[in-house]
Design a protein around this nucleic acid. Structure first.
Lengths: 195, 195
DNA sequence: AAGCGCCTATATCGGCCCGATATATGCCGG
DNA sequence: CCGGCATATATCGGGCCGATATAGGCGCTT
């Protein structure tokens, strides 16, 4: 989902400035589901306004640079409904930690242990943030989303804690680049053995 | 983790061409943890070679365009160890489905139900792929990684199936852009009420 | 036997997006 | 009084994806 559509979807929850979209939504607990930077939000809003999908109201406070408040137009609402009615694209999950784990045989046990500790700390911090947001009596879809996130992080933490010993035992002992290392997967070896 | 480091890490498992890196690693079951496109792999390998971190051996088969096989140099191995010894960056999780769920009150129940079905199908397909790869007797870090993925998808599917009714009950009834909608989180309302 | 699509394999390019940075102002604390 | 911080908008460089171009071989079909 591109930033353009994200802006549409967030504006459906009420008029907002670019700053609002970033600070009230994509910072904080919602960072875990969607992200968008100022560098993409501002151009997206400008373009949406040029296309007539959002309206612009300038709240000019004296002195301060005027706040640009955007709201969905009727055309914008239709575009929003249209975009959100498409089947969702696949989730994206990327993990530097996974890459480190994959390289365990080439790294010292200490390095792996530290990486596990760091990641567990990260996950626990994010879990705490989500739980705090959830405690604050959030209902509706936001509550549903936060609950999803809490469940996700709890399960993830539990699994990594349960299997970290096994991973750490794989550390060390192999020289990087020495082919020997890992025969990739059997499923892929089958494909390769044709060649 | 940038593509440059990913290339280093994958080459630590043995020499490979750009095509190998894409098809044997970032396509297939490993797509769930790390991704990199041809558009970034080829320039990254060229740059790594220019910097002396990887060596290039051209396997010129007659007729075919010559296969460019890259391998870590001693400098490259050191750079690899150095990069992987850094504390891991935070995981990235992005979900279009989450965005649709967030907008449930503005969308028809059918649309939400269809989005849930689509996502469950996606997750089940990825789970099946991972389970198949795991069955093929993968040990070591690859097995650990696949097992992590399997656990993740199983938990996710179970949670969505258990809570989908609640989400679907939130669908419909609210006009997009009508401010009323969602008072964001209480935790954020506290911050906002200062203004 | 000609043609077509597919697989292998390398490479580039447009465009999207992030992260850093610039700019401007008001407020509060030291 | 000044530095830091919060509010607020905006741009720019660079990284990366997705689409596309190129090119030869192989197998299947017509």
């Amino acid at each position: 989902m591109n930033v353009r559509t994200v802006c549409l979807a967030l504006l459906a929850h009420g008029e907002a400035s670019g700053y609002d979209l970033k600070t009230r939504w994509t910072d904080g607990p919602f960072l875990h589901f969607v992200d968008a930077s100022f560098g993409s939000i501002y151009p997206a809003l400008a373009k949406l306004q040029a296309e007539g999908l959002v309206s612009l109201r300038e709240e000019s406070q004296p002195g301060k640079p005027p706040r640009k408040v955007y709201a969905l137009t009727e055309t914008g609402k239709a575009a929003f409904i249209e975009a959100m009615s498409q089947p969702p694209g696949e989730d994206i999950f990327r993990s530097s930690f996974a890459m480190i784990a994959l390289c365990a045989p080439f790294l010292d046990r200490e390095v792996i242990a530290r990486a596990v500790d760091t990641r567990l700390a990260q996950q626990k911090a994010e879990l705490a943030e989500l739980e705090q947001a959830l405690q604050a009596k959030c209902g509706g879809p936001i509550g549903w989303l936060l609950d999803w996130g809490v469940t996700h992080f709890k399960n993830d933490i539990a699994h990594v804690e349960a299997t970290r010993k096994a991973l750490e035992d794989m550390a060390g002992g192999t020289e990087p680049g020495t082919e020997v290392a890992l025969p990739v997967c059997a499923c892929q070896a089958e494909m390769t053995e044709q060649a």
